[in-house]
Design a protein around this nucleic acid. Sequence first.
DNA 1: ACATTAACGATGA
DNA 2: TCATCGTTAATGT
Length: 204
Amino acid sequence: MVLSSAHAEHLEAGAWVARRQEPSNYWIGVHSGLIKLAIYNASGRSCTLSGVPPGGWFGEGSVIKRELRKYDVAAIQPSLAMFVPSDTFHALLESSLPFTGFVIRQLNNRMGEFIASIQNSRLLDVDARVAQSLAQLFNPDLYPDTGRTLAISQEEVGLLAGVSRQRINQALQNLEKLRILRLSYNQIEVLDLERLYAFGREQI
DNA sequence: ACATTAACGATGA
DNA sequence: TCATCGTTAATGT
């Protein structure tokens, strides 16, 4: 039933996936590429709320509440996304206990993610904040399909971590010197996920 | 101090 | 040819 009612879409880099204030008609999953949730103001400034790598799902909150979407959704990289209609989502929620469990875990993880973000922004120095922002993207619990490399520009890491691109560049080079990351053009490879997670945590 | 913006050239796809 | 990256200088808090 899910497969018959859902559809997939190829998205170009920079394409809008969904817009703020529109009805939340779909629960959306990322199969490949990278998508971000962000809010843009009239003057073009933006606040990136979260990056969603392969294996990630989002929008369940607004679908459950049947409310307008709270953020804009854009493809950072060329991506393949799955769109599950709201009605299908609700039907699954009522008929499948395993699905309900999945959604609860999803909401719980998302809550933990945002709590950690606030904590990180107030307690950690910039290098550690960058490390934690990246570690979130590579979280195997939330995003089981994400490998150890991700195509993302340093500019986007900056928007995600709330730090300027120039400062991100320094932080990433520091992490590369520690052999935690390997950097290449528009791509970040995690060499040591454990140390990436641990980086900065001793400060707390 | 330390981050940000602005600007520049170099380099990759 | 355009996006991305590495760096520096000026500016702000």
